[in-house]
Design a protein around this nucleic acid. Structure first.
Lengths: 187, 187
DNA sequence: AATTTTTAATTGATACATAAAATATCTAAA
DNA sequence: TTTAGATATTTTATGTATCAATTAAAAATT
């Protein structure tokens, strides 16, 4: 057997049978997770120390801050990528602490809209301002170019993951793929 | 005033007084988080469906799989970046389900080592093999080059974040910066 | 040797997260 | 108009997470 043929065969074998060991992908996933966890842990810690609040509470307020007319619990569930049952409890606690209030919908007695109270809006604005500065410092070791590159790469990754997930879990007629429990992976 | 001068002034003003609004950093953080959450949610879902287990359990087994002589609960806590109290419960459940066993340390009666049982090791090997394939598919939309670029960028980000965090929370004499509760941010 | 400090792990209270089941309501078709 | 199904939320059960407090043992001081 000629060498070129052998090489050819090897190349094909490689692609077909041992497509590579996926070690880089695994490393990339671990690194992504580490970065995420590092930043998230620090944000949680600062939210706690500075504002005596938590990340899920902050995230929920952030969603509502962009929705002057309020949001349905179901919308919150989708946007935040958490289950509906979780939202119920979170909203309960935020109502207790005076940052939110529930508004019944006259058109649909199953549903209800949640809105920020004036206090809630005021408090969120303060937190968001500091939060944005924190984020900036976390990235201060990267140049604007490097940030661009990461943005682009993660954008592509997002599409890649979504394609794989959607493939396994096809959309329903109305566009919500959830198997149960209402959690959507939209963002 | 000539137009060119005006443009020039604007550019300088931008650089000098409004160093930038940090919006790109914020977008990058959101995107990073989204990618992380998408992948993580899918892994959780598959671990549940295929192996009736959870991500924290899988992670703990993964740590132990690399430590043939077992690990202290405290080490697990640091490596996994979770609190000591959390590890206690997680280990309890894994012992109940027969994947782990606790081994008292003759040299230190406060501490104990946890090890995989043969069954635990066997089960983990199976899961890890599939897990690695899942990860590979999530990244299949990226070329090897793009993966390299992301790997490098996230590496730099990790350093950047660590620098900021360490700065705010300087190491103690013995090397553990934790304020309380034992959680370390080592990885 | 007695005391203090540090360390390792556990416990208890609370918050968040899921999936699954229950409840209530709305919509559309028989 | 009843009824079948879809939808919105809540409830329930369980697992995972934190922090703060506690126990027990070890190490360091005095």
């Amino acid at each position: 057997m000629a060498k070129s043929a052998l090489v050819q065969l090897d190349a094909e074998t490689k692609v077909l049978e041992a497509p590579h060991d996926h070690k880089d992908e695994l490393r990339l996933w671990l690194r992504l997770m580490t970065c995420n966890n590092l930043i998230e842990a620090e944000i949680r810690s600062r939210l706690r120390e500075r504002f005596a609040t938590t990340l899920p509470r902050f995230d929920l307020l952030a969603q509502l801050a962009r929705a002057p007319d309020g949001m349905l619990l179901g919308e919150l569930s989708q946007r935040m990528m958490v289950s509906a049952g979780n939202i119920t409890g979170l909203v309960d606690r935020l109502v207790d602490s005076g940052q939110l209030h529930r508004v019944p919908l006259p058109t649909d007695r199953r549903a209800q809209v949640v809105k920020l109270t004036p206090a809630g809006r005021r408090e969120f604005r303060k937190m968001a301002q500091e939060h944005e500065k924190w984020i900036a410092t976390f990235f201060e070791g990267l140049s604007p170019d490097e940030i661009e590159v990461l943005l682009a790469g993660l954008s592509k990754l997002k599409l890649s993951v979504r394609a794989v997930v959607a493939d396994r879990r096809p959309l329903t007629a109305r566009g919500y793929p959830r198997p149960r429990g209402q959690t959507s992976v939209v963002r």
